[in-house]
Design a protein around this nucleic acid. Structure first.
Length: 343
DNA sequence: AACTAGGACAACCGCATGGGC
DNA sequence: GGCCCATGCGGTTGTCCTAGT
């Protein structure tokens, strides 16, 4: 395929657009429409290449462009979409009315990316950066094998891990030894972990980057987004696997403790509501913020993307915003957790 | 006041893609 | 099927602005 020459460089202006040029371009497009970009500058009396005109129009002059700072809701949406789509700025822009891919890309690189890095979160994988962990303390932890931790990190959603540890702790507050609690619970729920491993065999890894996901998929197949009947998560890639795993956990748990009737339908929001009840009722100091992690609106609907943002409504400062993002990404590893059992 | 460094954002560059011939 | 062209897209660069010294 032959390379398309951008334009005839001779006599064509580059650099910032002047108000006069903007006016000419706007006037021409409002009268004739965009049409053929290559011929447009000549017809509009502009000494620019068509590409430059198109970019100026789509990124700046278009009347439906929203100017000004990004709202918290928009920022959260960008983070969510980026965790799913990666650097597909045009796809992200398509879900943010009035924002251009260029604008979103710039905002990501200058604001969000830096903030995530500052918080120790890898902006590519959206997971905590292992290189920032206190490795020495981890090595001193009981039964913790670093190699296992690394391999686990690549496979398990931090929130899934956190949820697991929270649940394990919360359901055994009256037991004596934390280690015996965990071992007992891990035995009781061993089949859950087997299910999780089985899911990993058949589904994309929890934190597989989206572009790898696409590369690994057969041509013509779309990236799986959501089960329409299942609640969405902030990590849609692993939502189904995680949902099913949690569902099995609940089926295996005491129904009376958690207001779950035996044999009840655990699809849709009931699973998550039950988990929320468990979390909210437990005496553990660890609190799992279900609302911030499991949005109950399908991501496929652009208009619904901002609904989880109600939790950001009262956030007014950069510090609060940072704290919110930190909590969204944070996870804890109990010292006594036996990773051998998880692998 | 002058200079510098860094941030923010507009614009450019080059490759990819899809359609028409 | 291959070529050409228009357009889309993502990464990079250039430029302006502002805060700090």
């Amino acid at each position: 395929m032959g390379r398309t020459p951008c334009c005839d460089k001779n006599g064509l202006k580059k650099g910032p657009w002047t108000p006069e040029e903007d006016q000419k371009l706007t006037a021409y497009i409002s009268t004739h429409g965009p049409g053929n970009w290559r011929n447009l500058p000549k017809n509009a009396g502009l000494q620019r290449c068509g590409k430059s005109c198109r970019l100026r129009w789509t990124n700046y002059l278009r009347p439906d462009i929203k100017r000004g700072r990004f709202s918290f809701e928009e920022e959260e949406t960008i983070i969510q979409l980026h965790s799913v789509l990666g650097n597909k700025w045009s796809a992200i822009a398509a879900r943010l009315p009035g924002r251009t891919d260029n604008e979103i890309k710039n905002y990501w690189n200058t604001h969000i990316r830096k903030r995530l890095l500052k918080m120790g979160i890898d902006p590519v994988t959206h997971s905590p950066r292992l290189d920032l962990l206190d490795i020495s303390s981890l090595l001193n932890s009981a039964q913790l094998n670093l190699a296992n931790l690394i391999s686990l990190q690549t496979l398990i959603n931090p929130e899934a891990l956190r949820l697991l540890t929270t649940l394990l702790a919360s359901n055994n507050v009256n037991e004596t030894s934390p280690e015996s609690i965990l071992n007992q619970k891990l035995q009781d729920n061993n089949h859950i972990l087997s299910t999780m491993n089985a899911q990993m065999q058949n589904q994309p890894p929890f934190f597989q980057p989206h572009h790898q996901m696409i590369q690994n998929m057969p041509p013509g197949q779309h990236v799986p987004m959501q089960n329409n009947n299942a609640p969405s998560a902030s990590y849609p890639n692993n939502n189904i696997a995680m949902h099913e795993t949690l569902e099995q956990f609940l089926m295996n748990s005491s129904s009376t403790d958690h207001n779950i009737e035996s044999g009840s339908d655990l699809s849709d929001n009931s699973v998550f509501q039950s988990l929320k009840n468990i979390s909210n009722n437990n005496n553990s100091q660890q609190h799992f913020d279900f609302d911030s992690v499991f949005s109950t609106t399908p991501i496929s609907s652009p208009g619904n993307l901002n609904q989880s943002s109600v939790f950001m409504n009262n956030i007014s400062t950069e510090e609060e915003k940072e704290s919110y993002c930190c909590n969204l990404m944070k996870f804890e590893i109990p010292e006594s957790l036996d990773f051998e059992s998880l692998l």
